[in-house]
Write a protein that binds this DNA or RNA. Structure first.
Lengths: 213, 213
DNA sequence: GTTGTTACTTACTAACTAGTAAGTAACTCC
DNA sequence: GGAGTTACTTACTAGTTAGTAAGTAACAAC
């Protein structure tokens, strides 16, 4: 049953403050997951970073698993770059009639990820912990991994003769994942976009990919 | 001071039994690290799997960090496939005079890794936890990552015109790492060597790599 | 001005954590 | 057969873990 009515401005302000607190909790959790993994992180450590008690954290997230759900919701459940990119080629899109290009899409992803190292690291951490069937995220990340690579039926990637578009994406994303792992481990040593542009010359070498990049 | 003398057969048997126990401990630790990460694993859980007490485990490894050292020693401190492969091309080697080929070397690595999924998963787990500067393995894995990719001065990879050998290896290993992560998360769904052979067609496409694969 | 809700706190529990200390039974050395 | 070593065990400590229960102060609704 929906007991909510139109909130008064004061109620709005209150709930905005609560949202901000939840944001603080999730942000602290992300920092701690990046430092120690989800298994190595504790609610007490989150509470200490936010400046409240551990029970105060539980007031917001209910349980450690609930905190994980909040982290996932905050960072992953949103429209994907792939959908945004592909929509440009749909009827009414800016590139209607043209075909999407894999290297171009990859550059978009790299640029986006380059601006969010913390998010990239979080993904690597949770994705790795989710390799284990014991992880509560095992199925979530497996589905995610499948979904990103499986060919969307109505997408018509523009690729050179003899190249399998699905394999090209699969391979490029695997290489991207590997490079991102190195980058977040040594951000001062590795220029992620610069490295990626060198990877491009391997993954999409000229003259084979001339006109398809 | 070296107080050791030639051990009697009986002493050998005893120390062999001790070695076997240590092997059991390390094996259990690997299973648990794969399931929960190093941070999520406990000495008690290792002890339970081996069938001794937690203090019994500490008798062998001294501390949790000591257990990590044993795991690393057992699994990573040994001669590498790269060195073995390259030595074939050195004076006196089976392929003396010829140049090593990157795709061939990658196939060797894939075949080896395919037979050791547990080891591959361990590497992914520890490598990911080591992304954090807080990890005791941070420097170890960073050095490792640098060492594998940095060009060895006296190696003369045979690659097509216009291809940078160092970048080709770097990119191929990144893709291999990404693929391995998918494989260990979904071993029943993914045929690792078969997938790699498709990756080969992307990373080393014909006709560009004709004669270099 | 009562009633309810929100955003917490204090206080607690039961289980678990790595690590220490002191034993002990079995075996080896000589 | 005594001394030393090995491979453990029991018993313990001090700290941490997720989670619960019962408050309480501030505010909102009506």
């Amino acid at each position: 049953m929906d007991t909510q009515k139109t909130p008064t401005p004061a109620a709005k302000k209150r709930s905005a403050a609560a949202q901000e607190r939840l944001d603080q909790i999730v942000s602290a959790a992300v920092r701690l997951i990046n430092a120690r993994g989800f298994n190595g992180m504790s609610l007490q450590a989150v509470a200490d970073e936010v400046g409240i008690t551990q029970a105060g954290v539980l007031h917001y997230v209910g349980s450690k698993h609930g905190l994980l759900v909040e982290v996932i919701r905050r960072y992953y459940d949103r429209s994907s770059t792939l959908d945004d990119y592909l929509s440009l080629f749909h009827p009414g899109g800016a590139f209607e009639g043209q075909s999407p290009k894999i290297p171009e899409y990859c550059r978009l992803l790299v640029a986006e990820n380059n601006s969010q190292p913390e998010l990239v690291m979080l993904f690597q951490m949770l994705n790795t912990e989710a390799m284990s069937t014991e992880s509560p995220l095992h199925e979530y990340f497996n589905d995610r991994s499948r979904g990103v690579i499986e060919p969307e039926p109505d997408v018509n990637w523009s690729v050179p003769e003899g190249i399998d578009a699905t394999e090209a994406i699969s391979c490029a994303l695997a290489a991207m994942y590997g490079l991102e792992g190195r980058w977040v481990a040594r951000p001062d040593e590795i220029d992620y976009p610069a490295e990626w542009s060198k990877f491009e010359d391997i993954l999409f070498p000229l003259p084979l990919w001339e006109g398809y990049r």
